[in-house]
Design a protein around this nucleic acid. Structure first.
Lengths: 259, 259
DNA sequence: GTGGCTCTGTACGGCGACACACATAGGCAC
DNA sequence: GTGCCTATGTGTGTCGCCGTACAGAGCCAC
């Protein structure tokens, strides 16, 4: 495991080759990320992009009348927010810190240039973007077909996968905002999950009691996204070793035949 | 207007510089795209990517028990399917032809190489990917908050924006599959839109009667995505002129500093 | 025109979530 | 402990969509 307070706590950064990492290192700055901090919002200028280490970041979509839905969650496997790199300056998504922690930030313009220039970083970022898209697609499906119970289970699992403990500091009200449902619906759903033995609730806290049970409650919903993220992390690892040896050469061979 | 049966009917290809376009041209092949043709499905090999000209392509997401939801629609402004370029080989999205027409196809491996190599094409593709992500995000929100009427209106507008006429060849059953609702719900919703004077239905056909009214029925849903796609097309136009003059200059500096 | 298939319209009970209202309980400040 | 604020639990009526069932209507083949 990497030492505390190292950029390598972010798995994407850890996946970089030595050359790529040392190149990026002086451009990174450790910053605290308090819950509620707005990283990106329509109309606000974007100065920095963030590689989370111990915080988690949520992508929300707000409708005209103020209703929200979470459309993605980002932990130490990624970057907040990737959409800036795609050239579409405007997005209705609002990106905020969901859980207090730390991140390494980098000037948005610099990372954009790095994204343009270096194949290695770009590959990692695109691969991550793909996983994020699958997350959003899955949420779209979930919003149509799944019950609040299932969605709450999914949300808890996704969040806790990206945190060290097994307890989430969140009220039913806040969870309701994330899921785009009423606070009361969260309460009812949480009670169902509690009855099933999956979670344990305290005032302002939700903890996993039985992970297997919780995963069962979430259904295919979680399974698919989890698998995708496991594949993402595998890609990170293989990328690190591949690029570690001889950056560009190995990369070319990769396209000729899959090793 | 471009001549019939030219790759320039696809707006992304039309946005390329002369150099980029002539480079790509011999690699493109005109193919008919019959409705229902599967472009991409989990488990099937991907040989070709498609630049639609007169067809429209839909991205569906299928759950384990066979229920579907549309998570995106692609016309002559884009490419089907971009996810292949991102390095995530697997996606649960199924990409099929929704409306019969034509497209220019290119070998997936070749376009992937072009995507890696050329900044111009990559910029266009990423910009398009951003618009597609916003579409998916919007659908996620829509699936939570909007009624079937609104979603049907949105679907009709998005489809007909990408076709030449103002009539869609589609049954209520098929529309129901796209929206992820029952056939009967589509019938009821279509009648509401008909009563409002927005559309006119025939057996197997739905036509716009009053576009303003239909847009009003769709709500912010459509407006946001439409604006995003207008911005995308503007980017295409400005890109064509910018790259026409001096292609790689702005990124050269960073290539040097990397080495 | 006639038959037959597909598409469309309508109805009814059920369920999940919503809006609203209100009661209870946890935990911090003092 | 006491008070107070916030978080949580519960109930009632409404609404939108689902599942199911069935009737009518359009259109092609013959």
């Amino acid at each position: 495991m990497p030492a505390p307070q190292s950029p390598k706590q972010n798995r994407m950064l850890a996946a970089l080759s030595l050359a790529g990492y040392t190149h990026l290192l002086p451009l990174l700055e450790l910053v605290p990320m308090p819950a509620g901090y707005v990283i990106y919002e329509l109309g606000l200028p974007i100065k920095y992009l963030y590689f989370p280490t111990t915080c988690i970041v949520t992508r929300l979509y707000e409708t005209e009348n103020g209703a929200c839905t979470q459309i993605g969650i980002i932990g130490n496997e990624g970057l907040a927010d990737i959409s800036v790199l795609f050239g579409g300056e405007r997005s209705r998504a609002r990106v905020i810190v969901q859980s207090t922690g730390e991140a390494y930030r980098i000037k948005a313009g610099i990372l954009k240039s790095e994204f343009e220039a270096g194949t290695e970083l770009r590959h990692l970022l695109l691969r991550f973007a793909h996983a994020l898209m699958i997350q959003t697609e899955q949420i779209a499906v979930s919003n149509r077909y799944h019950t609040v119970d299932q969605q709450l289970a999914y949300f808890l699992l996704m969040s806790l996968d990206r945190l060290s403990g097994n307890e989430l500091h969140i009220t039913h009200e806040q969870a309701g905002i994330m899921l785009g449902v009423r606070r009361e619906s969260v309460t009812v759903a949480a009670n169902k999950l509690h009855m099933a033995g999956a979670i344990h609730c305290r005032r302002g806290h939700i903890a996993i009691a039985d992970r297997k049970q919780l995963e069962a409650s979430a259904g295919e919903n979680y399974k698919i996204v989890k698998e995708e993220y496991e594949r993402l992390l595998e890609t990170y690892l293989s990328s690190a070793s591949r690029f570690g040896r001889s950056p560009e050469k190995q990369f070319k061979r990769f396209f000729q035949s899959i090793e």
